[in-house]
Amino acid sequence: MNKKRGQQSIIFKVPPTLSAAAAIAGPKEGEGLLGNYFDKVMEDNLGGQDSWEKCESYMMEVAITAAVKKTGLLMMDIDFILAGDLLNQLIATNFAMRSLERPFLGLYGACSTMAESMIIGAMMLDGGFATNIVAAVSSHHDAAERQYRFPTELGAQRPLGAQWTVTASGAVVMTQGNNGPKVTAATIGKIVDPGMKDTNAMGPAMAPAAANTMWQHFQDTGRSPDYYDMIYTGDLGSVGKELVIRLIKDKGSDVSSNYEDCGCMIYRESQDAHAGASGCASSAAALCAYLYPQLAAGYLKKILFIGTGSLHSPTSYQQKESIPCVAHAVAIEI
């Protein structure tokens, strides 16, 4: 039987298991809400490396190695690694892969990459193409800031709607069989571009994509919002989160009681991150450091994890293009 459901969704026949997850984060994230949950918190934003880009690669290596170690597998048991980051030409990921020596596909879905990697990984496992797969992403605040916006030492004021790119990396190991949280369904998003151009308002730009994918997921699978204990979006921040609730309400559904955004789970109010966290690692840090252990322990039973990405570049922004956005949903159940 075909595993595709409805217009954009997949129901896995043999749902792959998430057998371990690990996350490493920077010092600001370490002082944040999830501080105690990270496998490792770096003392500074360089992590002993001599550039922020190298630090990001280092974080990804650490996250992947730690996640694999938790499963009891060896690195050579991993069939494929699916990973990505925010830097041009995926340098953080590509350079991290040099030492791991595993077959690897680099993926770019901006901040939705974690969900994207997990969906493709789950397909490979359910399709019988692999036994063990690692999905991983990273982002680094300073490396992203200098690529997308201004040098970090420039005395520019950040608007209240701006979000703070997370310095962290998260990795999950996905396997066939075993007990643990399973990926049961997924919905792949379409590009949605509400015509917004302000790169200081990425959450609001991505909210329609997130709501669109979430809504489509309910349509395709026949599940309702209250099927899930919690629904999480990746990095919409406080403003984008409010917009998703309103967009879904317009469709006649209410998710205000079981919906949270990962971007609102990383930093404390006092940390001056304004509208919340962003970046590939926003959703990955929340998933790998916090949600996965909650699922594994059975505190959460059914979640819908929606990675959200804004797919613009500094070039497209300077050419006054609006921001195309995408969101992919992964249903994780135990």
Binding site: G161, P194, E242, L243, L247, H274
Partner: peptide
């Protein structure tokens, strides 16, 4: 959507 955003946009 722009109108909806203006309502929740932090001033």
């Amino acid at each position: 959507y722009q109108k909806m955003y203006e309502q929740v946009k932090p001033k």
